[in-house]
Amino acid sequence: MKSLRSYAILYLIFLYAPIALLPIFAFNDATIIAFPLSGFTTQWFTELPQIPALIDSVKNSLYIAVITSILSTLLGICAARAAAKYSFRFKRPIMGFIMVPLVLPEIIVAVSLLVILLQLGLSLGAWTVIMGHVLICTPFCIAILNSAFQNLDSAMEEAAIDLGETPWSTFRLVTLPLVSPAIISALLISFTISLDEFIIAFFLTGTEPTLPVYLWSQLRFPARIPVVMALGTILVAGSILLLILAEMMRRRGLRRAGLQDKGGFL
């Protein structure tokens, strides 16, 4: 089975090749993105804070990502809790329907929202991007939260009720602490997705670009590419950090529930 193992490692190299190149070119002292490398520089990184349009787009993106992650995690909690605790009519089709944005091409989500917003005469802006982002982030949140709520031992909640707690205080004192790692993990994942999302933002952002929309506009200018590489390096490093945090949270949640780790997100 050695060949299978080396294939898997080759596959990992294929997966990581693009992001491994990112820092190499970000620190390369040349405006052309090609080998051979010419020299080491941090110039591209120091240029970053001096671009006002970039700073604005970062602020805009952070604002959108924070609100999106809160809203989609809240919706995800409702759906995951309902799916785990209650049986109701049309449960399977309803849950399936809520997960649809996960597989729908993003351009379809984007243009259909655009059409309806323009028909209603609403102006485009951060809120319209948030509307679209919540739609595509909620299924990911549900996927993460589902296992946490499913693994919840209902005997603990019943015990709390028997001991005189109200349903709300039971939720706050018993349920929430048990699922909070999954909630944090869902917040982080939806934040990351929103921060990176391009298509929906591209269609719905109006005059204030998000960071990916700004990046897209810069890709046309060869002279700006090294700066884009530097920015990309920071972005990728940030995403990886957030993901490691989310993964640690997910594992802590599994340990709290006393369960065996069976695999990643999704």
Partner: peptide, 10 residues
Amino acid sequence: TIPFWTSYLI
């Protein structure tokens, strides 16, 4: 899954 979560555009 890590590379999948990093900026699609980039």
